[in-house]
Amino acid sequence: MKFKFLEHTADVKFQAFGKNEEEVFENSADALKEAICDKKKIKAAEKKDITVEGGDYESLLYKFLEEIIYLLEAEDFLISKVKEIKIKNFRLKAVLSGDKASDYNFNNEVKAVTYNEMFVKKIKNEWVAQVVLDV
């Protein structure tokens, strides 16, 4: 399983999984994409290079997901998928593919990533991230 959505009274909560840091971050981005535009297929027409830094895995994930929301609202870029991702010393470099957001019809507004109930940790052999999105 790449990710699953959990119950939350007002907001959207998910858990993402992965065999390493990169994969759990990539799957978190997929969960965010689904929160924004359901299971809609988005063309990989454009690419975006991004770099974000954090003080720990949680702040790194916060910034990474926030960047995806920022690109959507400020640059009309809707993510299709994470093409490449590398994490080292809480510094993340990634290449995202996606398309012009205004060419698609979708209707879920994700306002922000929150730290509420957030964690990123290795449980046994698997990395798990939990995020609550303000919608």
């Binding site: 939350h8 009274t9 007002a10 907001d11 929150t114 730290y115 509420n116 109930e117 609550v132 303000d134």
Partner: peptide, 8 residues
């Protein structure tokens, strides 16, 4: 109801 940090 439940929010983040503070409740709503």
């Amino acid at each position: 109801h439940q929010g983040y940090g503070f409740p709503i």
